[in-house]
Amino acid sequence: MQTDLAAVDSRLVDDMNLEDSRPTTLIEGDDVEEVLSSISTVKIEPSYPGSVSRAVICDPVGRTIDAPYVVHDEAGLILLHLCDGKPEYLSSIARNLSKKGGSVRDASLVISRVFQDGGAPEQGDDIFIHSIGIENDFKIRISSDDEYVDSSSPSFLDFALAQGGITEYHLGGRYLPHEIGLSEFIKLENGCYPGQEIHARLDSRNPVTKRLVRIRCGKNLGGRLITEDGKLKIFTPFVDFFAHAIADEGVVDGVINHKGIDVEISTIHSAF
């Protein structure tokens, strides 16, 4: 059976205001950037309020636990977590900060984050992270109110799988950052951090060549997909024609025909 990919609905997202309800944390106190950098794959430099950085937190064997956006605020650093629950590494941060009077606080109720179309109007003091998604067509709006929220459609999982977002399927210590579209945030010059030994060894001896791809097809494929150019390990469910997979180096972007079904493969260069 031939599936016409053009007919596959890539969903209607006009005027989308999709709430991201994952936890948000404020870390505040002296040397807060230094404390976060000590466990992140990338150094977080002090910056002006409103600017946005990105941290990646791994376990000691180099697998990804979280990859929060970091909003620099007058009150401290606001971590927009990508994991569903409150991550354990906050205990380590809290311990260090509290020795100098700092703390780790739950900011989920005062900060909202919403995925929007790239062209949606911008006003006020809100903060925007632009050019996210496979076609760079979306942005994240971060604000201290919730007047923009409409979480009805599409669901977060729909959106993340269609546009290259990180979900709970990517985290939990399952994959290296390199394998889930976070290679650009591995900075070995940051020094020692959990997982750094593994990342350094990979960098010098066995560079990671696998990469995160989005799969789009009209049928729910599962498990492993073998092509002429290499294998794809599908590790998320298919939701509305989309899923994510980790692809061998040889797998190229484009449409392949797998047992009579058209399958579109697109590299996710920078997962959000």
Partner: peptide
């Protein structure tokens, strides 16, 4: 002012150290 209004000390603690 920033998103949190200058001070986050009114927010609930996310982690308590034993």
């Amino acid at each position: 002012m920033g998103l949190i209004g200058g001070s986050g000390l009114g927010l609930p603690m996310a982690v308590e150290v034993e």
